[in-house]
Design a protein around this nucleic acid. Structure first.
Lengths: 214, 214
DNA sequence: GAGCTTGGATAGTGGCACTTCCCAAGGAAA
DNA sequence: TTTCCTTGGGAAGTGCCACTATCCAAGCTC
């Protein structure tokens, strides 16, 4: 198919597709002659994946390129490819100053991992962006005077752990390795908006149960 | 305290504080004379809240102003104030076309709420941004050929429901109404990065348990 | 051969979160 | 008193980002 058809079938304007081609989020089409290139179903699928990451996952273009690089890199193991995708996602900025709140948050997070027995996560503490994000968020709470500590976090962490197990179970249901990897990446990126929306819906459900609509 | 001290104690540059004052995210200080204004602890607290929303919660400035308006509006009931904060948060864009995927996603979400017995959420279906986000995200999965439906979503929804119950339990532990409302708003905004970070950490923990670090 | 579409390149747009610059007024030091 | 620094406020500028508009020459279509 040509660019116009790719545009029509994906709902993405030709100008934007050209932009993605320029940004190397899509591989170039097969050049038929000087003014025509041919695209196939794989391009359409990749384009939809890119759109889903950008629009639903709110992933910036540069990060999309990075993630796709890992998706296409067959030399990496699955845990690495899954991790690479998650790690490439936008993160909260590095805490500029290591003030008392950040240090206290660091201790609480460490205590949390101890309590949960997440031995692997402890090993990843110094390098995992998720770990850093958690510390920053907990520090923000503490800075405002709320005592978020291991005790309050533990039940949340248990629930998130079960969520992660569901993620992996779902991934395992896919037959081919290529499909599993794409699903892992997608899951890492698209599951979060799903979880977020479910969380907000559940909050609405529950708070109206407690307090009514008024 | 004066602007310079407010800046020092919050770690936010004076230029940025001026910007927040101009954008009405902070109330003006008490004007001492033509070139001096006096700020107090409440300004510092509000500034930290604003920073937390913008940096950790990634909430755009315009939305922060909107949310703060609800926080300060004593005339609203708690469920409304909590909802108002969550609803003001950035959302995925409206699905442009009501194609087959969006329609199928809508049906699956409706089936999910039936299955879960979330009667209040069903009533909110036409107006809740969270509902719309969920539909958009599920549609994105379906467009890529993954069969996310009520059956796969239900266990996730159960876990998120328990999370929401934890949220409300935590809120109830705060003694004063004003504190509860601020905590509800903050929880709606800052809990999400916490949950996200916990989820990613749990994924790392679990996938390394399954597949190792290699 | 007139008039269309094609893909590629370049430059422009609009929004956002700051950040820089300038100013007049005030306080402090010489 | 004079000089110098600091203050808060406003206007304009910056840098980034995700597009989007405009050109262009080549080719296809009637």
């Amino acid at each position: 198919m040509r660019l116009a058809e790719l545009s029509e079938r994906s709902g993405v304007s030709t100008a934007t597709i050209k932009y993605y081609l320029r940004e190397r989020l899509l591989p170039p089409g097969r050049q038929v002659n000087a003014t025509t290139a041919e695209y196939d179903e794989e391009h359409l699928r990749r384009l939809r994946l890119v759109r889903a990451m950008i629009q639903v996952g709110q992933v910036p273009v540069a990060k999309v390129r990075e993630v796709l690089g890992h998706v296409d890199d067959d030399s990496l193991g699955r845990a690495i490819r899954l991790g690479a995708a998650t790690w490439a996602l936008p993160q909260v900025p590095e805490p500029v100053e290591d003030d008392e709140y950040v240090q206290a948050a660091r201790q609480e997070v460490a205590a949390l991992l101890d309590r949960l027995g997440w031995e692997n996560a402890k090993l990843l503490a110094t390098i995992s962006p998720a770990y850093r994000s958690l510390v920053v968020a907990v520090a923000a709470f503490r800075r405002l005077g709320y005592g978020w500590g291991a005790e309050q976090l533990a039940p949340y962490a248990e629930l998130m752990h079960r969520t992660a197990v569901l993620d992996l179970d779902n991934m395992e249901t896919h037959p081919s390795e290529a499909e599993r990897v794409e699903f892992a990446v997608l899951g890492a990126i698209l599951n979060e908006p799903v979880l977020q929306a479910l969380h907000r819906l559940a909050q609405e459900e529950e708070s109206t149960r407690w307090y009514g609509f008024g």
